[in-house]
Amino acid sequence: MKQAGFAAGDKVHTYKYLAICGKDYLRYTSALLNRPSLTNIKILDANRPSVLNLFVWLRPVAFIGVLLSVWQIAISRHTVHLLPTPVEVVGGIADLVQHGLLLKYVVASLFRVTWGYVLAVVLAVPLGLAIGWSRRVEMAFNPVIQILRPISPLAWIPIAILWFGVGDLAAVFLIFLGCFLPLLLTAINAVQSIPAVYIDVGRNFGLRRVDLVYRVLYPAVVPQLIVGLRITLGIAWLVVVAAEMIAVNSGLGFLIIDARNAGNRYDLVVAGMVLIGIIGLLLDLGIRSLERVKSFRWSYSED
């Protein structure tokens, strides 16, 4: 069995019993390079990869199925209505689709997240790289960053409304605030943790400032930045829900608070929560696909 990802004759003998097959071999080789302990090694049957893959796929689906059944049964056996059943939640989602609200609210929330997040990325990443590059600038900025950091973006809600009124702008501003500092800190840390040897090599080959930034500094920080981008997108999605409960009258956060206030429609409340969860998962999957780009992946597989 060919073991792509390993150099011929190097270290491979340790894993010579290992047969890796199917699309997952890259994941497994990188896991091995990360932690070459025997507990990480899965021996797959080379003759039946598709059946195994199917089984691996079905496992989480089956688990969700079990959870939903338990939920359904537990609620229907209880006299006090603590929570809508899964069936009622599906009904709630169908209701939203019928009224044309599902798409409208999802788009409204995503619109705010996109603007707040993109603005934060565009401003925080270059600023963070610049701050991290110079020790003196970092020393000047650091106290302010450390004071602002523990303030929840939600604490800014009154000020956001004061400045921007009730509307999209206030929500976008809150998301921007929630994303800006984490991204800034990620970028600062990423620059500071570049091994000095990379910079030395760049200078040795005669790179000037701009080339050094473009050809050494930028590629060296990308893997750490991707981790930061991923965590921050999660934050943006958390903040938008809170912002929509107060500052606007559309979106998934508004759906949740409005369904409760307007008639205790808890099926719609939980429907909103489920939608937030699913969309959050999809966003994370989207940004994680960046981690699989080969020239970005080095930091995850290097020992």
Partner: peptide, 13 residues
């Protein structure tokens, strides 16, 4: 050119 221990190769290239 200064050759470091293998640490000097760029992992992203």
């Amino acid at each position: 050119i200064f050759v470091f221990q293998e640490r000097g190769v760029f992992p992203w290239l």
